[in-house]
Computed example of a mutant assay.
Amino acid sequence: MKLAAARFATILVVLCLALTSPFAAAQLQTGSAIWEKDIQKFEAADEANPPKPGAILFIGSSSIEHWKDVANDFPNKRVLNRGFGGSRIVDSTYYAGRIVAPYKPSMIVFYAGDNDIADGHTAQQVFDDYVAFVARVRKDLPKTPIAYISIKPSPSRVALLPVMTEANAKIRAYAVAHPHLLYIDVASKMLDASGQPRAELFVEDRLHMNRAGYDLWRGTIAPFLP
């Protein structure tokens, strides 16, 4: 019993010490540190070929990461892709000081929230995390436009559509009410006449988009870019 009590006390001490460290607390709260290798790859690329300030920064989860030819899709713009697949909103917030602020972008185009909801987050949680991302970016870039791409409806996550729709509505209302925030509605264009995700826009996993899906995104996003 004494040994068990001693072990329990040790665990409590370790947890208390961890929570007093902002970095450790962030790890416990978000798990964002799992993306450290991805972020280091971005930093290595930046060191080898430093991006000029003023690019349009695309950031977020796999829908951004998989958009390998995003720069070619906007040939008259200077575009930088810093998506890392599987990430959630909090992950971009966590690393904003390293993969957002240093670029001094002319605009941030942000897609995340899809994985959050798949992980069981509510619409309110997704909205709160979006607001936290905006607040974090504003510390370094107070007037840089942030364009949020609505959470896309996909065939593999059709059961989550009600939560996605609610989260999109909350974010849209917030963006409309605040300066330098934009909401880009791709979601409604990715639904068929019966309100179901358009299967022809997706690859075999029914989650990630094919060229047709990205063509739809390109046409919808282009008018918003500076």
Rank of each mutant, 00 (worst) to 15 (best):
M1E: 10
A5E: 14
A6Y: 00
V13Y: 05
L15A: 11
C16H: 04
A18G: 09
A18M: 09
A18W: 00
L19G: 01
T20R: 08
T20I: 03
F23C: 03
Q27W: 09
T30R: 02
G31Y: 05
W35K: 10
W35C: 05
D38L: 01
I39H: 02
F42H: 11
A44M: 10
P51E: 06
F58E: 08
I59A: 12
S61I: 05
S62Y: 08
S63K: 01
S63R: 12
E65V: 02
W67S: 14
D69E: 08
D69R: 03
D69W: 02
V70S: 14
V70M: 10
A71T: 12
A71S: 15
F74Y: 15
K77I: 01
L80Q: 04
N81E: 10
G83K: 05
F84L: 06
G85L: 05
G86V: 05
I89T: 08
I89D: 05
D91A: 13
D91P: 00
S92K: 01
Y95S: 02
A96S: 14
A101D: 03
P102M: 02
K104P: 00
S106N: 07
F110V: 03
F110L: 07
A112S: 15
D114S: 06
H121Q: 11
A123L: 01
Y130P: 11
V131I: 11
V131Y: 03
A132N: 14
A132Y: 03
F133Y: 14
V134I: 14
V137K: 02
R138D: 06
K139P: 04
D140C: 03
K143S: 14
T144D: 12
P145Q: 07
I146P: 07
I149E: 12
I151N: 04
S154E: 08
L160M: 07
L161G: 03
V163S: 02
T165K: 10
E166W: 00
N168M: 01
N168I: 04
A169M: 00
R172H: 11
A175L: 00
V176G: 02
A177W: 01
H178T: 13
D185P: 05
V186P: 05
A187N: 10
A193E: 15
S194A: 15
A199M: 13
E200F: 08
F202P: 09
F202G: 11
L207V: 09
A212C: 06
D215I: 08
L216T: 12
L216F: 09
R218L: 09
T220N: 09
I221L: 12
F224A: 12
L225K: 10
